[in-house]
Structure formats: structure tokens, C-alpha cells
């Protein structure tokens, strides 16, 4: 069969676009893997923080950790973008509406969702709060369907659902009798977290149609870190924790290394979201729960329980369904 120049060019273009999407899928998986690494490293860094009383443990320490994680990640990304000659792009982007939307995304995904997550756990108990917050990829997919008109095929929905169920199985803790007064308020805060993370992805993807994802994520991390440092930490007494950490070089270094994993992960997540769409990007990022289990078992010698194995398998099957169209995979070994 002879192929004319034009047909050959069309085939080459199709291949280029397919490879680009395939790369997006791997970027999404990589973001999940590095986020799992960040969770484990952040856990290690937190274990090095001196004990400062029970009340500090609930809000001050987690929020101080979130602030340091985002701020340090923002600084790592400044180094990266500086090296690539993109520092000017940050200011240029901030002057445009899409760039400003990335700042709003940062506040939704950073302080609001993180705060809601912590309040949800403390008021409603982890059993319910973690189950609700694990729904964030579904929230993101729904919002992207509504606001970005992104099409989501049934296969991706099923995969995402399996991943979410897997994440819930992994983080399952037996429920304790809820304190009725604060219980529902806790559920509300947990829902706010899921909504915040979902909305972050959608707003960021909107912004990234016009600005560079590598710049967008830098803006996101710096905005979130700065907001937490200036407005949230003073309220919860978080600065006492941060100043303690700064006196301990080992602990400070641990936070900085964890933040490097966060920077790499977020960079990959934003890139994947814009390349393959919010639904797939979020579902593949959601594999972090499984990666977290794998890293904990390898590096921290955590016991591998039945729940962890079953949950991780569900996440794996779900993510595979999201990423690969079985029909095409078996036909030609191509990723849809």
C-alpha cells in the first residue's frame, strides 16, 4: 500500500498526539508516586518535631507543616524556573486573569482544603472525614465536566470509583461513636476539603490553558505557603512550631527534602491535569495512597495489613482502567 505524503504526515501527527497523551498518563502516575513519597517524608519530618502539648498536635503542627511544605516547595520551584529562565513569566502571569485564578485555586486547595481536612478529622473522627475527603477526584471530575466541559468516558468513571473505594479501604479506621454536636460540622469541613481540592484542579486547568503549568504551580505553592504563614499560623500558634523547627537543622532539612518531593509531585500533577484532563490527572494522582503504603512498608517497615493489600489492589486496578483502554491495549499495546 502506498501512502502519500499527506497521509504519512497525518499518521505522524496522530502518533505525536498519542505519545503526548501517553506521556501525560505517566506524568500523572509519577505525580502520585512522588506525592506518596512526600507523605512518608513529611511523616518522618513531623516525627522529628519536639512534643509541644496535645492542643498543638491537632492544628498548629499540621498547619505549620503544611505551610513549610508549600513554602519550601515554592522555593524549590523558584530555583527550577529560575534555571530555566522562566522567572519573568511568574510576574507576567500574575498580571493576567488566568494567573490570578491560579492564586484562587491555591487558596482553595491550600489553606481551605487543608484546614477543612484537619478540622474534619478532629471534629468528626478520621473514619468519616477520611472517607469523605477521599472523594476529591470524583468532585474534581464532576466540576471539570460542568465547568470545563471535559468529556469523561464510562471506563474512566469506573476506574476512578474503584480507586476511591481503594483509598477508603486503605485509610479505613474503625469509627468511634461521634460527638453529635460537632460531628456534622466535622462532616461539613471534610466535604469542604474534597470540594477545595476538586475546585483547585479545575480552576488551575482553566488558568493553564493560557499560562505555563510550570509557572502556575510555582504561583500556587508560593500563594498557599504565604497565606498560611501570614494569616493562618498566627491564629493557631503555628509560628512557635516553625521557629522551633528552624533551630533544629536536621528537622529543617527533613522538611526541605519532603518539600522537594512535593514540588516535583505538584509540578507533575499540574502538567498531567492540563495534558490529559482533570478526571484522569486526579485519578492517577490519587494512586499516592497506594504508593504511600508501598514506601512505608519498604522504608519504615510498617506492617502490611489485609486492608492495605486489598485497598492498594483496588487503587491499582482503578488507575489502570483510567489510564488504559483495554480494547486498544490488547489490540496494539497502545495507551488510550
Amino acid at each position: 500500500m502506498s501512502i502519500s505524503g499527506n497521509q504519512k504526515a497525518i499518521m505522524m501527527k496522530e502518533k505525536l498526539n498519542a505519545n503526548f497523551a501517553k506521556k501525560g498518563v505517566f506524568t500523572g502516575l509519577f505525580s502520585g508516586c512522588t506525592w506518596g513519597l512526600n507523605s512518608v517524608l513529611l511523616g518522618l519530618a513531623l516525627s522529628m518535631v519536639p512534643i509541644m502539648g496535645e492542643s498543638a498536635a491537632i492544628f498548629a503542627i499540621p498547619l505549620a507543616a503544611a505551610c513549610m511544605n508549600d513554602s519550601f516547595a515554592g522555593l524549590w520551584l523558584l530555583l527550577y524556573n529560575g534555571g530555566a529562565g522562566r522567572l519573568k513569566e511568574i510576574l507576567r502571569s500574575l498580571k493576567t486573569f488566568p494567573g490570578q485564578m491560579v492564586c484562587v485555586a491555591a487558596l482553595l486547595g491550600g489553606p481551605i482544603a487543608n484546614g477543612g481536612y484537619l478540622l474534619g478529622i478532629s471534629l468528626a473522627g478520621p473514619a468519616y472525614a477520611l472517607t469523605i475527603t477521599a472523594l476529591y477526584p470524583i468532585v474534581g471530575a464532576l466540576l471539570s465536566r460542568i465547568f470545563l466541559k471535559q468529556q469523561i468516558v464510562p471506563r474512566v468513571w469506573v476506574g476512578m470509583l474503584l480507586s476511591v473505594v481503594g483509598a477508603i479501604v486503605i485509610s479505613y479506621v474503625p469509627p468511634e461513636g461521634g460527638n453529635s454536636e460537632t460531628f456534622y460540622l466535622g462532616l461539613l469541613f471534610a466535604s469542604l476539603a474534597a470540594l477545595g481540592w476538586g475546585a483547585e484542579a479545575v480552576l488551575a486547568v482553566f488558568g493553564m490553558s493560557m499560562i505555563d503549568p510550570k509557572v502556575a504551580i510555582n504561583i500556587r505553592e508560593l500563594t498557599s505557603g504565604l497565606f498560611l504563614a501570614v494569616f493562618v499560623l498566627p491564629i493557631v500558634g503555628g509560628w512557635a512550631i516553625v521557629s522551633q523547627v528552624f533551630t533544629l537543622p536536621g528537622t529543617l532539612g527533613a522538611f526541605a527534602i519532603a518539600a522537594l518531593a512535593a514540588a516535583v509531585s505538584y509540578l507533575a500533577w499540574y502538567k498531567a491535569n492540563t495534558t490529559i484532563g482533570v478526571a484522569k490527572g486526579m485519578a492517577l494522582n490519587g494512586t499516592y495512597v497506594m504508593w504511600g503504603v508501598i514506601f512505608s512498608v519498604i522504608f519504615l517497615k510498617s506492617p502490611l495489613t489485609q486492608n492495605l493489600v486489598i485497598g492498594s489492589l483496588l487503587v491499582l486496578i482503578g488507575a489502570t482502567l483510567v489510564a488504559i483502554n483495554p480494547k486498544e491495549f490488547f489490540k496494539k499495546g497502545e495507551v488510550a
Binding site: G5, N6, K8, A9, I10, M12, K13, L16, N17, F20, A21, G24, A84, G85, R86, K88, E89, V205, M208, S209, D212, P213, T274, T275, I276, G277
Partner: peptide
């Protein structure tokens, strides 16, 4: 004059905007 002024960067922007359905790539040649 900027360091980001490379073919790779431009191609990536174009592929991303195509994937986000704001550009079309209907015309190709060798």
C-alpha cells in the same frame, strides 16, 4: 532573548492547547 525561547517549549505549549481544545491541528505536511 529568553532562555525559554526553544522549539521544545513552543511545541509543548501548542500540544497542550490542542489537548485543551482551544487550538486545532487540522493541517499537516512533511
Amino acid at each position: 532573548t529568553e532562555k525559554q525561547f526553544t522549539k521544545k517549549v513552543f511545541v509543548d505549549h501548542l500540544l497542550d492547547m490542542k489537548a485543551n481544545f482551544i487550538l486545532d491541528d487540522n493541517d499537516v505536511e512533511l
